[in-house]
């Protein structure tokens, strides 16, 4: 077996007041070394649950398959997987540099202090924060904070990268910038990467394969789409490629219809179009930026 990551027959059940809830059932996925895979699906379908099990932050059900990374069965979290969280999760009392160094010190404990500092500085410079090394998270914009989060994950030289909707909180311009930062870094190291997103365009720009998850509960792999665009990818060229729109339509069709029908569920009826001047048209509120995650919530976030 030469897969870098093998997820086999993975299931996750949460106890609820109304009895056990099977969030993910029999999830199978193999990632090749150096492959970038995106996981898309409806919010709440269990994408993040899968990711957090790979990260070791939550335990799969007993006797229900397992996760093998580079030939070794995973148990518990560890710095061999670089995780980029949805909120940057920087420690606010440490500078950007010290946040990255905390992980570097942990992984490269045999290296000299000078070398470790060099590693932290290198990755922060690569993500474009060479001038902001010694700023604290509160002095950085949301996008810059997530750059630190990316630098922190890469600086561990992990066996693979796990990204949990890392750009979900950013405005679309910053999001595109950071996607580029991520691709650039990934191109240097060719780390195996698994990323959860619900942004179809993002998935098409970044991924080699896109794994579509069916609707929850008991979510699983619905379909897998190969993304044929050669690398390095140019966003502009991509947007002019009719193939891009064909794949995009396929993904959206999956999310709107097949995510449900594959499970024998009825897709939700399409909403009637909203007249442009009605109050509902402008009622969109951006997601809250500072999400306080309570211990009990963290595992149910999907």
């Amino acid at each position: 077996m030469s897969h870098q990551l093998e997820i086999s027959a993975l299931s996750k059940t949460f106890p609820t007041p109304h009895g056990p809830l099977v969030v993910v059932r029999d999830f199978n996925l193999h990632l090749e070394k150096g492959e970038f895979v995106c996981l898309i699906g409806h919010s709440g379908c269990g994408k993040s649950t899968v990711l957090s099990m790979v990260a070791g932050l939550s335990e799969p059900d007993d006797n229900a398959g397992g996760i093998i990374l580079a030939g070794r069965e995973l148990s518990g979290p560890g710095p061999d997987r670089g995780v980029v969280f949805q909120s940057p999760s920087l420690l606010p009392w440490l500078t950007a540099f010290d946040n990255v160094l905390l992980g570097v010190d942990q992984v490269f404990y045999t290296a000299s202090a000078g070398e470790r500092r060099q590693i932290a500085e290198y990755y922060l410079t690569v993500v474009g924060l060479g001038d902001a090394l010694h700023k604290r998270p509160t002095e950085l914009s949301q996008g810059m904070r997530q750059r630190v989060g990316i630098a922190r994950a890469f600086a561990l030289s992990p066996r693979m990268l796990l990204l949990d909707e890392p750009f979900g909180m950013l405005d679309s311009l910053t999001r595109m910038e950071l996607q580029q930062v991520l691709v650039d870094l990934w191109t240097r190291n060719h780390l195996t990467a698994l990323m959860v997103t619900h942004d179809v365009d993002e998935a098409l720009f970044l991924a080699d394969r896109i794994v579509m998850m069916t609707n929850g509960p008991e979510a699983t792999v619905g379909d897998i789409l190969k993304v044929p665009f050669p690398r390095p990818r140019d966003r502009k060229a991509l947007l002019e490629d009719p193939e891009f729109y064909r794949l995009r339509a396929e993904l959206i069709e999956f999310l709107e219809v097949r995510a449900y029908t594959l499970k024998g569920q009825q897709p939700p009826a399409p909403k009637p179009p909203v007249p442009p001047n009605s109050p509902a048209a402008s009622s969109y509120t951006p997601p809250r930026q500072d999400r306080a995650v309570l211990p009990t919530q963290v595992e149910t976030l999907a």
């Binding site: 979290p77 995780v83 420690l91 561990l156």
Partner: peptide, 13 residues
């Protein structure tokens, strides 16, 4: 925040 504890767990502090 659980986020901070997750960081500690992921880094295996």
């Amino acid at each position: 925040p659980q986020d901070y504890l997750n960081v500690a767990r992921v880094l295996k502090l």
